[in-house]
Amino acid sequence: MDFGPYLLLASMEGAVQAAVLALMALGLSLVFGVMRVVNIAHGEFFMLGAVLAWWFTSLVGGHPAFGFALALIGAPLIVGLVAVAADLLVLKRLDYDPERTIVATIGLLYIIQQLALEFYGPDARPVAAPFSWRIDLPWFGYSGYKLFVIAAAVVIMLGVWALLTRTRIGLVMRATQFDSETAQAFGIPVGRVYTMVFGLGAMLAALAAVLIVPIQQAHYLMGGDPLLLSFIVVIIGGLGSLRGTVVAAVLIGMSDGIISVFFSPTLAKILATLLVALVLVYRPTGLFGTRTA
């Protein structure tokens, strides 16, 4: 294939990856930024979203769009509830102590993963896309659904942005993130804000999963790699900077796609990983961060 179209293809692929990554990382970034909790189980919320999406779509017959719409609402809701329960039963009782929450969320990871294996099984299962347009470009074909994923992710991110900047709930969250003690002093129910943020973060991961699952399949071990990538995105973007998170997701998603044009794939991964590590080494607060953790 000629270089131009090849680059175009790689960029489109990068953009899809970036879109999903941004959603998932946004959830992690919120939790990280507001609660200072390193949630190792975030990838399992993603997996749970995908598995539930399969379950919802398998409940509904007829056009695949119905099942998909149901999954888009149902899966994040259930995952959000699971996260809220985890927060109330475990994290809150740990006082959000950074080290203990790491162990506790590793425990959650094991629990969710094993339950998925018991009830959903070890197979990778596909979910039908709500529509199956194939776009015929002069050089190659491309999935119309993938372009929809990008658009949907942008809409959801705008929604989150509006929630945080235009509503009272968002104001409360930002105040808590800025200084939780002062927020408490001003009568903000910090405990309830934390629970809400943890639930919202998990819902974003689940949303990302529902969007991606017609492209990938739902599998009980699918949470690991996206978790690592979102961690990287959150830190590169700068702790607590949601704008930074989105920019970093785009950078990392796109560069991952484009570097693979020039190098053999595994070498490309090695170089991309090293590059990200070095960015952090020389800019420890990330691209948009103002402080270290």
């Binding site: 294939m1 790699d225 053999s264 991964k269």
Partner: peptide, 19 residues
């Protein structure tokens, strides 16, 4: 064409298939 084991999407590798 060797695909890295952590990969979950493949389209970007297909242009490497010679005509």
């Amino acid at each position: 064409i060797a695909i890295p084991p952590t990969e979950s999407s493949f389209t970007r590798y297909f242009p490497k298939i010679p005509r």
